[in-house]
Design a protein around this nucleic acid. Sequence first.
DNA 1: CGATACATTGAGGAGGGTCAATCCGGGTGG
DNA 2: CCACCCGGATTGACCCTCCTCAATGTATCG
Lengths: 221, 221
Amino acid sequence: MLALVDTCQATATARGRLCACLEPPALGRLRAIAADERLAAGEVLFAPGQPAQSLYGVRQGAVMLVRTLGDGRRQVLSFLFPGDVFGFEPDAVHSCSAIALRRSGFCRFPLAGLDEDLQLAVRLHAVACACLAEGLEHMLRLGRMTAAERVAGFFYRLWVRLDRPAELHLPMRLLDVADHLGLRMETVCRHLAALRRAGVVGPLGPDGDLPVLDPEALRRR
Amino acid sequence: MLALVDTCQATATARGRLCACLEPPALGRLRAIAADERLAAGEVLFAPGQPAQSLYGVRQGAVMLVRTLGDGRRQVLSFLFPGDVFGFEPDAVHSCSAIALRRSGFCRFPLAGLDEDLQLAVRLHAVACACLAEGLEHMLRLGRMTAAERVAGFFYRLWVRLDRPAELHLPMRLLDVADHLGLRMETVCRHLAALRRAGVVGPLGPDGDLPVLDPEALRRR
DNA sequence: CGATACATTGAGGAGGGTCAATCCGGGTGG
DNA sequence: CCACCCGGATTGACCCTCCTCAATGTATCG
């Protein structure tokens, strides 16, 4: 079980990481309660209405959190990568679904075990704050940025999050990106095509490979 | 100092309330560290870049949290009313401004005092989760709802939040509403006019009074 | 009585949505 | 091995919602 938490530690960004900044007692508790979980691409970790009894940390792979309206409208709340923690709910019930975008592995932390150590609780709050800030940031994008800005900004942030690779391996479909950015798939595709014509990115490969040629131009929007 | 926290308790919704569900020791600590703060309409409680050293609970009045882009684009992240808690930041610096919409009073809770009691820390996390969920909800609106839905939904939620009064007293300008909903003021005004023509709301008074004639129609969108 | 601040309304334009056709690569089954 | 199919990406044409700009209304305040 030790390896579970340590894997998180190795791959995570410091900010969203649950096990960061913990001293032996809290870390020990975290290790004691962590459970392993694995999902294949497309599988659902939890769905709306299900009881929310754990937090999850992504170890490998990629996940998205999705809310769906009755009439089929979808909002992808976030894409999550190794080190990210998710599953926060104000009530004891999930309000969105978590869907693996590829074969993924998770640390599962039962909520019951998280409320009994002060340092752990404080850390938990810090991680929740990071999620909250992330959400507010995205609110600004959805409310006040143009389609071009959203698309370029999205790929820039993804590129940074994935350690600035020469080639981005998108685990999600363009439809998912569109549902994240509050746009239509066609709109995302068009703006991506514009970036390609401008020499900012290369052609999108069939397996989701996207060469990033000019990250600076992406950042500038 | 006792009265401060108790005032929160009296007026707050259970969910976002910091002092809810606390037993004497934690409640005592909360009371011990709570400080009073008052602002006139339009005054700024904190601004981006300022050190974030406290959480705040609204006691009376109304506040909005605002993020502004360099080019003047604004996103109102949330409107806050008695009982709401705000000031969560992942870093020790504020990322948005808090602006009083009218004469308002706050409980100020220094962060330093919040990290030392387990029950308090757990409660803090619960409140942060509630904020987070609120944010995700709004993300869905910004990303996937039409202007008409956003406007109607906004006034419906405000009406519920303010205890379903016959007449809504809007503390904010239409411009603020627009910047909250990712719309233009004119668009908000037009859809509000449509609701008026449909007999769902009455005419908007000069001091922000808005009779709510058919809440059910508002809820239906 | 102007001046200010905000709400309201109209006319016109643009950005993004909608619908539909086509492409493309990979899998499947004959 | 190849024809077929399928999911997703791409592109085009058209349309509608919302934005933009501008004029007008209205209440408050000096």
